[in-house]
């Protein structure tokens, strides 16, 4: 008897608490509606991946086909190519783009004139705020075959002009270089902040021990940065399947698909341009699921190693 009244009391307590916060729940309505309508409802639409989707029959009217769409993907002659390109572009950015902000932060850390330091920061952060379309426009025009700056320089030096954007062998270099140009400065902010958080007493102690600037960098600065580096590195590895396709779409052309076409750009052409919704949804789902597993695992590892992660 006592127990029953206790649970009853608890329940009325609960509804009392909910009623007391009714205004907060009211605030949540438009917020949650956004997530339900524009984020979770499309997840319901993922069933298209298992259907022979027909626009006229609609989502529920189209027949189920099991894993037929996935079979089509894995049998697709381009599947290996887009998977390879996705992994290669990510790996190369990890190797070449990832260290850049760290190096930049370390170099900036050695600057003693504050005005100079903030001037360099102002210049290097700027590209981040420019739209991908404008950046792609810059790349396209700088590399243009006849009037592009790069080719004008090549011509002056006596080399032959090259139409870079139509050559598959240059695509990854171009893509990764422009990524570094646009993001290195901005990404260095996190490292600069981490550098600011290093205890100054450690430097004093190192100096007492006779360490010069170089040794201080090696024994104090780098170990101080390590947790941040490890965390961000693991997150980048986790994001290996999420290539910036919005930029690729602007820079690639059929002549460079061989090295430039990644999973998401293929999904885009197949789904949006050719209206093959079933197969393109299946391919997107494959990308999301594998990507999710990667991110999840990376985060678990990051949490284990230094107790910090995305969530």
């Amino acid at each position: 008897m006592k127990k029953l009244s206790e649970t009853k009391e608890k329940r009325s307590n609960l509804s009392k608490r909910i009623w007391a916060d009714r205004q907060l729940y009211f605030m949540l309505i438009p917020f949650l509606l956004f997530y339900v309508i524009f984020v979770y409802k499309p997840m319901w639409g993922l069933q298209v991946a298992f259907k022979d989707y027909n626009i006229f029959k609609g989502m529920s009217g189209s027949p189920w086909v099991g894993f037929e769409n996935f079979k089509t993907i894995f049998g697709n002659p381009y599947f290996f190519r887009i998977l390879r390109n996705t992994l290669l572009i990510s790996t190369y950015s990890l190797i070449f783009s990832f260290p850049m902000p760290i190096i930049l932060a370390l170099l900036l850390n050695e600057v003693r004139i504050r005005k100079f330091k903030s001037l360099v920061q102002t210049c290097t952060y700027l590209p981040y705020f420019i739209s991908t379309v404008v950046v792609a426009g810059m790349v396209t025009s700088f590399l243009a075959p006849s009037t592009g700056m790069v080719n004008l320089i090549l011509a002056k030096l006596g080399f032959e002009k090259i139409y870079f954007l139509s050559k598959p062998e240059y695509f990854r270099t171009i893509f990764i270089t422009q990524g570094i140009w646009q993001n290195a400065g901005y990404s260095s902010i996190v490292y600069i902040a981490a550098l600011g958080g290093i205890d100054m007493e450690l430097y004093d102690a190192a100096m007492v021990d006779g360490c010069g600037r170089w040794k201080q960098t090696l024994h104090v600065t780098l170990p101080g940065l390590l947790p941040t580096i490890v965390t961000l590195f693991i997150i980048s590895v986790g994001n290996i399947l999420n290539v910036g396709y919005e930029k690729i779409i602007l820079l690639y052309q059929p002549a460079t698909y061989e090295t430039a076409d990644v999973i998401s750009t293929y999904v885009y052409r197949l789904g949006v341009e050719q209206a093959n919704y079933g197969v393109s949804t299946a391919m997107g789902l494959f990308n999301s699921v594998v990507g999710f597993v990667f991110v999840y695992a990376a985060n678990k590892i990051s949490n284990k190693i230094n107790g910090m992660g995305l969530w």
Binding site: V39, L46, G271, T281, L285, S288
Partner: peptide, 9 residues
């Protein structure tokens, strides 16, 4: 997230 095509649909 659901991805490009389900969002578009």
């Amino acid at each position: 997230n659901a991805g490009m095509i389900p969002m578009y649909l």
